[in-house]
Design a protein around this nucleic acid. Structure first.
Length: 413
DNA sequence: TTCGCTAGTTAACAGCGCGG
DNA sequence: CCGCGCTGTTAACTAGCGAA
């Protein structure tokens, strides 16, 4: 039996198709809600008084190998309820179809959720791109988290470890349900007494995985004497890995000569290893140059000028103190403005003051601040930095410090 | 190499004012 | 009263950094 295919059957229920067209590689379907009454989200009163209309772009399930964008004509209604605090509201659509503020239809969100559950962040993002429903890894993870429900079954196997609110500043304790691979709670500190009190309140726990430190072990032994304590997998691997690397490093020279691998073939390295290897080669080359100049009788000052390396580094190489450090990283902040930190930036009341202080410290480059400010500036058609009304973090400022004086938005690799 | 976090970007939403 | 245009706020989203 044949049935006619109507345009409206392609879009979510409750909508009427106004028009449909192709825009580049996307199919755009303009739709509007079929009803003519809006319900105020605050008081629930119905209204037919349309204030205005605007267009929302919402991604829907792909069609014929194309991304589908729904151009929803949303209406704003006036709320006539005397006691309602809301005067104007945007019409709400069925939650099972299109949620408020959503950028995807509910049916697409469901697919994204299942992709995230099945494949995880990055793999799902790659697969979704092929399915013509582009979505970032973070969005996938966020959707999975948003839709997850807290488990109701009692805790049996938990892991407890240190957790940093801010590294080297403030630490807490994290407790995870290892059966469900979920965070159960965060304790405010890492004191054994705090952990003991929490563990004592959960007598169903039978196994506690913990680090090698004695604090959590003591807390678990006192609160849950019947529970089995085990070393967690990460610490076991860490111990084994460290012991192995120590042993290998001590004998590296002999190992290399034994296997005949004194020279490295870059073709056989992974992308990350190749980057590290290139860095290593650069450092080796710099060391050799400095040493040969020094042996030739060139003074340190001259070497510094000639090679562009710092006095400290040149001295280290000459004294034989420079050991090859694997993956050293200098932040762009230290690179451009070593004296600048978040506290310094926060000390400025507004953009103008920040700019004055940067000038006073001798900064002569140009600064373009991204984000909210550029949006506003584009609107206002202003180009000077004085119009900034929020202070960017030092990290942001550092990213914006161009060495060549050219304005740019973000450093790209 | 992976993955969580931060900072930046975009757009949904609400309010206000004004003209028809 | 209706509808448009503009602005401010903020949720949703993304790129890229850096710790592990």
């Amino acid at each position: 039996m044949q049935q006619a295919l109507h345009r409206s059957s392609l879009v979510p229920r409750g909508f009427v198709v106004e028009s449909a067209y192709y825009e580049g590689d996307k199919a755009v379907i303009e739709i509007r809600a079929s009803g003519n009454v809006g319900l105020c989200p605050l008081c629930g009163t119905g209204s037919r008084r349309v204030h205005s209309r605007y267009r929302r772009r919402v991604t829907d399930l792909p069609l014929s190998g194309r991304i589908v964008q729904l151009l929803v004509v949303a209406r704003r209604f006036r709320c006539d309820a005397v006691l309602c605090g809301r005067q104007i509201f945007t019409e709400r659509f069925d939650k099972g179809v299109l949620a408020p503020s959503a950028r995807r239809t509910a049916r697409l969100d469901s697919i994204v959720h299942h992709l995230g559950l099945a494949l995880g962040g990055r793999p799902a993002a790659g697969f979704a791109k092929r399915l013509m429903l582009p979505v970032s890894k973070d969005t996938l993870l966020r959707v999975v988290r948003r839709r997850s429900r807290p488990p109701a079954d009692p805790l049996r196997i938990i892991g407890i470890d240190d957790w940093a609110w801010r590294r080297n500043h403030r630490y807490a304790s994290i407790i995870c349900n290892l059966e469900r691979r979920r965070v159960v709670t965060l304790l405010p500190d890492r004191e054994p007494a705090t952990a003991q009190a929490w563990l004592a309140a959960h007598p169903t726990i039978a196994i506690v995985a913990r680090d090698r430190g004695g604090g959590y072990g003591e807390a678990a032994a006192k609160a849950l004497p019947h529970a089995v304590q085990v070393a967690d997998r990460w610490h076991l691997m860490e111990n084994a890995s460290r012991a192995y690397l120590d042993a290998v490093r001590k004998s590296m020279r002999q190992i290399r000569s034994a296997i005949g691998a004194t020279t490295i073939n870059p073709e056989l390295l992974t992308a990350a290893e190749r980057l590290q290897y290139e860095g290593y080669l650069r450092r080796e080359e710099a060391n050799a140059t400095i040493l040969s100049l020094s042996k030739g009788g060139t003074p340190i000052k001259q070497i510094v000028r000639q090679t562009g390396h710092s006095r400290g580094l040149v001295r280290q190489v000459i004294r034989g103190e420079r050991h090859d450090v694997f993956r050293t990283r200098e932040s762009s902040l230290d690179q451009h403005l070593p004296w600048l930190d978040d506290q310094w930036a926060a000390g400025c009341r507004n953009g103008a003051e920040l700019w004055r202080r940067l000038r006073a410290r001798g900064f002569r480059g140009s600064l373009r601040v991204v984000g909210e400010w550029t949006t506003r500036r584009r609107r206002a058609e202003k180009t000077d930095v004085e119009t900034l009304h929020r202070i960017p973090s030092a990290r942001t400022i550092a990213r914006l410090m161009p060495s060549d004086g050219i304005r740019y938005r973000r450093q790209r690799r």
